[in-house]
Structure formats: structure tokens, C-alpha cells
Simulated scan of single mutants.
Amino acid sequence: MRPLAASSVDTVLQDYQPRILRRYLWITTALHVAGFVLPPMVGLPIRPETVAARSAGILLGVIALVVLYRGGRRPGRRALQVSTAAALFATPIVMSGLILAVAQLLCAIAATFLAMYFVVFYPKLQARLLVGSLTASMVVGVVLAPTAFTLVPVDVDTATVKAAVLVVAVTCVVGAAEMFGSLTRTLIESASTDALTALLNRAGFELAFRDALEGAGGNQASVTLVLVDVDQFKSTNDHYGHAAGDAVLVDLANYLAGHLPRGALLARVGGDEFVTCMVGEHHAELPGVMAQLARQSPTSFSFGVASCTGESDPLTALYRQADRELYSAKQRHHPPDPPAGEASLQTEWNA
């Protein structure tokens, strides 16, 4: 079943993706404009055959920025697709209008950052397709460039210079994507994800919560938070071992991720404790949903609910209130210890 709740590292990354893309587009578009404007100011003419390519690259960057800003803080999927496509082709198009090898290599440096962006913010297969498209576009751009010169007076033919530029550029783009992009993605996942359940951990949840709160209007937004605690978890570990306890946690994580409302955040914040919350107009639906899930869940759990609007530090206040409610629920709810012969908890480690 496809998870409905926002429970993975992509939840943390989704708010940073348009920010990073905007910054990249601002920087590269400004550099492309500078490369167009500054040479005549120091007495270096712009060759007429390069004007169209440079102008097209700058225009693509401007279009991408306009689309992103029109989409607001959280642009839609279509806005991101259009902006990403524009960013992908802008630099190679500019490279097709450059006559200096060093200028083409400087553009390749910009492309390395775009390649790392692809690896960090897109699934692996899609990222590789995007990096491959970027690399292929760069190759076409350099090949179509009117000519290429080094900055030193050596007698080297244009084809050799272009070949050298391509070797360096492609190596930098692909290498940066595979090394630094993959490393960045791995570090973010490790810092934000619970290794056992693959849900967000507490750090990841707090980042996602702040982003969701800002997207819904800041501290004035209405929020409902629910703390979830597995019933008799210690007894399960004592009777069947920690492997069985881990299996219980994974089963509950998958159950909640698959049945919580779309847009709800979900994380494992420690031990047998999970947290979920909803921000905005539908937040009041969460307690009823949790009550229904608790009745139908194959894993018995208790939960405490807290809601607030307009708190200066809502997460702290919500945690405190929900923890009190959870404690009361645990006092009222004392399910029996699991029977020693319960087949569903038998694993290869304790059979």
C-alpha cells in the first residue's frame, strides 16, 4: 500500500527544494547576464553569432524564476518541472554561445551544482536520468559552440580544445553528482530517518513540523498532535525478545503510514513512541481518525491528543499536553500481557 502520511525524508526535503532551485537560478542567471554585459565594458566585443544562445539561456533562467515565484512558497509539481527543465537547458545553451574554453568550464562548474541538486532532491533513477540529460546537453552545447580558444597562445586546434573541455566538464558533473550529491542525500537521510521503521525521527519530524507550520500561516495556524505508545511493549520484549519487539514497531509504523490522512506527519520519536500531527484546516479530523485506527489496529496502542492555535512555541506546548493525555490513557487502558504462545509474535530468533 502506498503510504498516505508524510513520513519519509522527502517530507523534510520538499520545502527546501524550491529554495535551493531559486538560489541556483538567481546565481547562474546573474552570472550569464554578467558574461553578456561586462566584456563590452572592458573593451571585449560580443561576437554576433553568440548573442542568440546567450540571450536564450538568460531568458530560460528568468522564466524559471518567474514560474517558481508565482507558485509561492510551495510551488506545485508542474511549476517545479518547468523550472527544473529550464535550469537544465539554460547553462548548456549558454555554453553553445561561448568562444573561450575557460568560460565554458566556468559554466560547467554551475552545472555540477545542478547535478548535485538532482541527486539530493530526486529519486535515484530520476536523478540519474536528469544528470544524464544535463551531461548530454552540455556535450551538444560545446560541440555547437562557434569555436574555442585557450587563454594562452598555443597552437591547438579547436577540436582538441573542445575535447579537453568536454572531458573536464563531464567528469566534474558526473563525479560531483555521484560523490557529493549522493553523500549529501545519505547524510540527510541518516540525520532525519529512523533506521528501524524508515519513518522520520524526532529531528526530521521537528524540521517537517516547522515547515508545515510556516506553510499554513506560521504560529497562528491550528495544529493537532497525537502521541502514540504501544501497549505492553516491555512485556512483548520480555516474553519474545527484542526481535519480536522490533517487528511490532515496524508493523505499527507501516499500519499508521498507510492509514493516516494524506498530509499528516508521522515519525517515531523514540522507543515505542510515535507522533503524528496535522496542520491547518483539517487538523480537527485527526483525533477521530486515530480512535478508529486504534480500534482496528492489529497492534494495541494508546494515544494522547493535543491541539492549539496561536502558540508562540506550539510544538513544546503540544508535546507537553499530549504526553499528559497519553499518560491518562495508559492508566485507563491496561490490556493483558500477550500470551506466551502468541504465534504472531514468534520469529526465527525466538521460536
Rank of each mutant, 00 (worst) to 15 (best):
A90E: 01
A294S: 15
L200C: 08
P3F: 04
V156M: 12
Q14P: 02
I99D: 09
A169P: 04
V66Y: 01
L207C: 08
P339V: 12
A198C: 14
E49H: 10
H242F: 12
A191R: 02
N237P: 07
L106C: 03
P298C: 02
S83P: 13
Q296V: 01
D251H: 07
V230M: 12
S137H: 09
L326N: 10
G270P: 13
I188L: 14
R332F: 05
Y69C: 11
E325G: 12
G217L: 02
V156D: 04
M290H: 11
V305C: 13
P18E: 03
M179S: 13
E342V: 13
A159Q: 09
L227E: 11
D272R: 02
L130H: 11
V223I: 12
S192E: 12
W349P: 00
R70K: 12
A111F: 01
T184S: 15
E281A: 14
V279K: 08
A203Q: 05
T197A: 14
K234N: 07
A177E: 05
F209G: 02
L227G: 11
H259T: 10
V102G: 06
L60H: 02
M1C: 03
L293W: 01
F303V: 05
P338Y: 06
P338A: 02
A212G: 12
M116W: 02
T347M: 09
D10H: 14
L88I: 12
P39G: 05
L249G: 11
T309Y: 02
Q292V: 05
F301M: 04
G181V: 07
A30N: 06
T91F: 01
I46E: 04
R22Q: 07
M116I: 13
A329T: 08
S190P: 03
S190A: 15
A244N: 12
V275R: 11
I27C: 09
R78N: 14
Y255D: 10
G61V: 03
V142C: 04
A5R: 08
T28Y: 00
F89A: 15
G61C: 13
T84K: 07
V131N: 05
E206W: 01
V12E: 00
S96P: 13
R324A: 08
V167Y: 06
V62F: 07
G61E: 08
L183C: 10
P336F: 00
F89E: 08
S235Q: 10
A108Y: 03
L315R: 01
E311D: 08
F149D: 06
E285M: 09
S83E: 11
M41R: 04
G310T: 02
A164S: 10
C172F: 10
G218D: 07
R23L: 14
V82W: 14
L151C: 08
T150R: 07
L125D: 05
S344A: 14
A164C: 06
T236D: 04
